[in-house]
């Protein structure tokens, strides 16, 4: 892995590297040379298996991180090529011509993160979220709780039987009534603020 890293650095200038395990290495390369670096690893270093493509949202730094994880069947080791792309213009070169499996990952990332891969087959078709009109849901600024509260409502006429509440009301009716009345008043006043 040391030699591979050295050769990769000579050609593409590795900005950052991290040896997580003896057989797992993460490198960061520039966006411009990322596809070339991946092609070089596939064709010359024997990383023939595309394990996955994944994206991470770093909203604080206004960046997306794309990770191409490649596996070498001879050395039994992995290399993760990380690329940082701008969050305002999320466009990345497609690698569907390198692996037939890559288009599925790119379709999912387009849908879930909104990162575009021009030229990738069927990348604009919805895959999982048909009829979705909100911002891409895996981005950090999408709030699942808020969305669920705005979209879904509890069905009318339904109530829950919390065991603790039930037993309190059964065994200590007066105390339980006072307790829950106080709680209700507190909650109502908090909501008013």
């Amino acid at each position: 892995m040391e030699e591979i890293l050295k050769r990769l650095d000579e050609r593409f200038y590795v900005r950052e590297k991290k040896q997580q395990r003896p057989n797992l290495l993460f490198v960061t390369v520039d966006k411009k040379v990322a596809v070339e670096a991946v092609t070089y690893l596939r064709d010359y270093e024997g990383f023939r298996h595309l394990v996955m493509i994944s994206a991470v949202d770093y909203i604080e730094q206004n960046l997306f991180q794309l990770t191409y994880l490649l596996h070498n069947y001879q050395l039994h080791s992995d290399i993760g090529v990380r690329v940082f792309i701008d969050r305002e213009h999320p466009v990345m070169d497609s690698i569907h011509h390198l692996w037939a499996a890559a288009q599925v990952y790119q379709r999912e990332i387009k849908e879930m993160f909104g990162i575009d891969f021009p030229g990738s087959p069927r990348v604009d078709e919805p895959m999982i979220l048909e009829g979705w009109d909100n911002i891409p849901p895996m981005r950090k600024d999408f709030d699942t709780k808020k969305y669920a509260e705005e979209t879904y409502f509890p069905r009318e006429g339904r109530f829950t039987l919390d065991p603790i509440k039930q037993m309190e009301k059964k065994n200590y009716p007066l105390e339980a009534e006072v307790k829950y009345e106080i709680k209700r008043v507190v909650r109502d006043n908090r909501d008013k603020k």
Partner: peptide, 20 residues
């Protein structure tokens, strides 16, 4: 802080978790 990838053989094939 860190990131890793762990894999195992499931009944269907390679299964892995990429965690950041």
């Amino acid at each position: 802080a860190g990131e890793t990838y762990v894999r195992a053989e499931s009944g269907r094939g390679e299964m892995g978790y990429y965690m950041v």
